[in-house]
């Protein structure tokens, strides 16, 4: 099944539950009418939160950059000694 259909399916299921709640009127109607708004808001918050968390704990590796510099020198030295043209570009 195409991904877009899966997502529509999820939305449809949520919609059905909502209609069900409206019909059954177990909880206050005015409250039920606001549920989709809450849903959109919480989705937005979820997105922002995930991006925020991702940024806060963004994994960095400064020591890797240093190690790489060392290996670049090592490679240049070895390859130059083998006659490979390592002139800087």
């Amino acid at each position: 099944m195409k991904q877009i259909l899966k997502i529509l399916g999820v939305l449809l299921a949520i919609f059905a539950v909502w209609i069900g709640l409206l019909e059954a009127s177990v909880v206050s109607q005015s409250y039920v009418w606001l549920l989709p708004v809450y849903l959109v808001l919480s989705l937005g918050c979820y997105g922002l939160l995930m991006v925020g968390i991702g940024l806060m704990f963004f994994p960095t590796c400064p020591q890797e950059a240093q190690l790489l510099q060392k290996e670049i020198l090592e490679a240049k030295e070895f390859l130059s000694s083998k006659g490979v043209d390592m002139g800087s570009d």
Binding site: G54, P59, T60, C61, P62, E64, A65
Partner: peptide, 11 residues
Amino acid sequence: TRYVKNGGVHG
């Protein structure tokens, strides 16, 4: 993958 433990990005 860059986004797990022991992974990472520099620069």
